[in-house]
């Protein structure tokens, strides 16, 4: 089993790599952060004895993707699975945000993901099944003012994954959209979870479970995975309450919180 993971040097990507290593899969890891790839390769090889190939790339650049794929072809690697983890998060009032930063959210989360998915599908192992995971987000479930671009970029992945699932099912490809809530990936995120109190703690996903279940589910042919009972409850409300109402509620809530924060 050969697995390509993008964004592999970060929190979720690294946990995914560990889960695949535990299953004995061979890995091709890429990330824009080339410093993080070497220690991960060594660590995975020491823990699981699997073959790990790494190459840094900037997936928003077609040239960088080409050289990544050239390396794949030079090694004659054919894939059985693609985990699209690479992505960015940002928030703020749309008009006040830096223009290139806003555009970058869509460029990385969506455009780059399309580009690598398209090119890895050309390098499928013939005659066997294939699996693709798109890391969407709980944010894909609602329109989120002040996080509009991010939420929409994740919605794009969810819709795209669901459509692609139907389109590629006959040719033996399983496509899954993963919609996680918060995850304890770094200290700053943990602080944010702590600030939210118990609500933050219960909606936080456990990465060791989430990664295992994501791979289980995509192999079984599921389309969407929302981990955690609380997250599924929120997603349910997201479906029955009119989207316009949700958007204005979220905006008011955020506005109040911000006013309080500015005062305090």
């Amino acid at each position: 089993m050969n697995v390509m993971i993008t964004g592999a040097a970060g929190g979720l990507g690294r946990a995914m790599a560990c889960e695949c290593g535990r299953r004995g899969y061979d890995l091709f890891l890429t990330d824009i952060n080339d410093k993080g790839l070497a220690p991960l390769k060594t660590g995975l090889e020491r823990q699981f004895g699997v073959n790990v190939t790494t190459l840094a790339s900037n997936l928003t650049s077609p040239a960088s993707l080409d050289s990544l794929m050239a390396e794949v072809d030079r090694r004659g690697i054919l894939f059985d699975m693609l985990l699209n983890v690479a992505g960015v998060d940002d928030e703020g009032a749309f008009v006040e945000m830096d223009r290139e930063k806003v555009v970058g959210i869509a460029a990385i989360n969506d455009v780059a993901t399309l580009r690598i998915t398209h090119s890895v599908l050309q390098r499928r192992r013939p005659g066997s099944k294939f699996a693709i995971v798109f890391v969407s987000s709980m944010a894909s479930q609602f329109p989120i003012p002040l996080k509009a671009t991010y939420a929409a970029s994740k919605r794009f992945l969810l819709d795209f994954a669901e459509a692609l699932h139907a389109e590629l099912k006959p040719s033996g490809v399983n496509v899954l959209a993963l919609c996680p809530g918060g995850m304890a990936t770094k200290d700053s995120v943990i602080k944010a979870i702590e600030v939210q109190g118990l609500g933050g703690a219960v909606t936080t996903n456990h990465m060791e479970l989430l990664t295992r279940r994501t791979i289980d589910r995509v192999l079984k042919g599921k389309t969407v995975y929302i981990p955690g009972a609380w997250n599924r409850t929120f997603a349910f409300f997201g479906k029955i309450v009119p989207r316009r109402v949700i958007a204005s509620y979220l905006y008011k809530r955020w506005d109040k919180a911000q006013a309080k924060w500015l005062k305090g």
Binding site: A9, C18, L44, A184, M207
Partner: peptide, 12 residues
Amino acid sequence: ARSWYMTTEDGY
């Protein structure tokens, strides 16, 4: 001490 499963850059 940690509250969640978190990995180092080595994946430990």
